[in-house]
Design a protein around this nucleic acid. Structure first.
Lengths: 227, 227
DNA sequence: CGGCTGATTGAATCAGATCAACTGCTGTGG
DNA sequence: CCACAGCAGTTGATCTGATTCAATCAGCCG
């Protein structure tokens, strides 16, 4: 995979003319990172942002006691750490790969110039930041307002959308899903089991079949899960 | 208060030349809203964003059961609802005044053009979105990772920064503070009492004196509150 | 065949929510 | 100026969802 090819799949760059794409590719640095590799830590000096060409990266915060809250898991085409471009300073969260990955790194200064010169790119960036903002708003809502069954239902339905069907495959370990939902592995395990017992889903290893979409939908809306 | 004067205090517009400021003021609509007024609801069609010239506005999400999570409280100079500029669609949260307020409304279309034409304004907007993102990341961390005492300590310390001293005055009702911390009034009341009993703070009505900054700091870092 | 990581299950515990009653303050109108 | 309505805040008793601690199990790879 070469730089141009990699840059091409970054959604942030969609709709840009070829020349501009090449210019961006020329400032990018290709990085390979095996599964489990740390990209940056919370508090590291932030002097650029990343895009995922291949693989999976989680962005998270952790507290001193070791508990962790995943903010988002990014896949191919998505970028993360954009805050670093506009605010000098430190990354507000850490990032680590969940699979062998290929990343593009865009140094702050060079990218900042590119964006100042190209209004189209700037608009794309603002749209991206707005989307990210919306995601986080949803996350705050989920964690602050819904109980675990509601969050799980929302997660499963989102996966269904993404994978286009009611038969889905969990793409990351359950423990990581739990951290993303603001809970822990044990609780997730129990909740999945309850879902299965009530006929909401059928589960076998990492494969899940969504059986009662209607009920899941209601749970995701915030309705209580009464057995 | 006239439009220009109002637009001048919006931090998003800081550093812009006078002419540009006037152009922006010319597309703005001045709105007065008494305390308790709803600005927009979650799900309303979003065709512009707002800035606070005077007063206080809370932005929040609520679930069907009536529970509410405040995302942020905005004061003079701050703007909210910017997502509406870049993503057509619906507001992802609701907004309501917490005090008699004067607001500026910027219609999506006109502002969108302004931003496309003025790279300086675009950079300001990106910086603003990045800041907002950082705030939300912190919020997710607080709610997902810290217990109520930790969140409260962080809130009090932030107020201390803001008001420049260890003697602070709660600027919104305690019930609203609770909703912002992802808890409820009763729990907040009890936690404040515990803080006072341990000598962390002294409280009289809405006035709070921060006595043990060190301990508060440690709590805000995520350390447990053992009595 | 161990050995490791991921996952499940059970029992005990706890922080915080809920329900309910009560206090105190403030502004309004007789 | 007092009485009363109404909201904000406090406090107590109880309940519960979720975490914690601990043990066990399943699957996979070298």
């Amino acid at each position: 995979m070469d730089l141009i090819e990699a840059a091409n799949i970054v959604t942030l760059f969609h709709g840009l003319p070829r020349a501009q794409l090449e210019a961006l590719a020329s400032i990018a640095v290709l990085k390979r990172a095996p599964r489990g590799q740390e990209i940056f830590q919370h508090g590291d000096p932030a002097d650029g942002f990343y895009a995922v060409a291949q693989g999976k990266v989680k962005v998270f915060r952790a507290n001193p006691l070791g508990k962790e809250q995943i903010l988002h898991v990014f896949g191919p085409g998505e970028s993360f750490g954009e805050i670093a471009v506009f605010e000098r300073g430190e990354f507000p969260a850490g990032a680590q790969t969940l699979a062998d990955s290929i990343l593009l790194f865009f140094p702050r200064k060079a990218f900042s110039e590119a964006i100042r010169k190209d209004p189209e790119l700037a608009m794309n960036m603002m749209a991206l930041l707005a989307t990210r903002l919306r995601q986080l708003v949803r996350k705050v809502e989920e964690i602050g307002l819904k109980e675990v069954p509601g969050r799980l239902a929302a997660y499963l339905l989102a996966l269904g959308q993404e994978q286009g069907g009611a038969d889905i495959r969990l793409d990351i370990p359950k423990g990581q899903i739990a951290l993303s939902l603001g809970t822990i592995q044990e609780t997730l395990s129990r909740t999945l089991k309850r879902f299965a017992e009530r006929g909401l889903i059928r589960m076998k290893g990492r494969d899940v079949a969504l059986l009662d979409l209607d009920w899941l939908e209601r749970l995701a809306q915030g309705e209580r899960f009464e057995d």
